[in-house]
Amino acid sequence: MAMTEFAIQTRPVTVLNFDTSMANDKDNEAISSHLYEEAETFDYYSCEEAVKRLNDYLDHELNADERADVVKHLKICKPCLERFNFEQSLVITIKTKVKNLCAPPELKSRLSSLLHRP
């Protein structure tokens, strides 16, 4: 999508309320700091640059600066903001719903008895 369509929107209408809700749950800053070293500067007007970082963004693999770069784009690009929001909701939905599948109690008691057998 061409950024020029949205560049006139100087202030974000939608609040970035999704941004901090899941942050800091992983120790990830060291992992990803080298990721985008080839890109000297982040082009805030490029949807492509932001979308390239979508998964790292969703999984909290970006360091603070990299994350700020993406957020800066989302603040000026409503289409990307909506899509990123959607992707984040999808991940959260999947994560939440699959947690309902648990190991059968019989399996748990079998493991316990195997561990404690004489």
Binding site: V98, K99, L101, C102, A103, P104, L107, K108, R110, L111, L114, L115
Partner: peptide
């Protein structure tokens, strides 16, 4: 982490019997 292990085993094996065996082997 047993529930997570079981879920992962289900995804790997595709059926609950093998998943339980895989969890047990892993656990031991």
């Amino acid at each position: 982490h047993l529930d997570s292990l079981y879920r992962n085993a289900m995804r790997l094996t595709g059926n609950s019997n093998d998943a339980e065996d895989l969890v047990q082997d892993t656990y031991l």
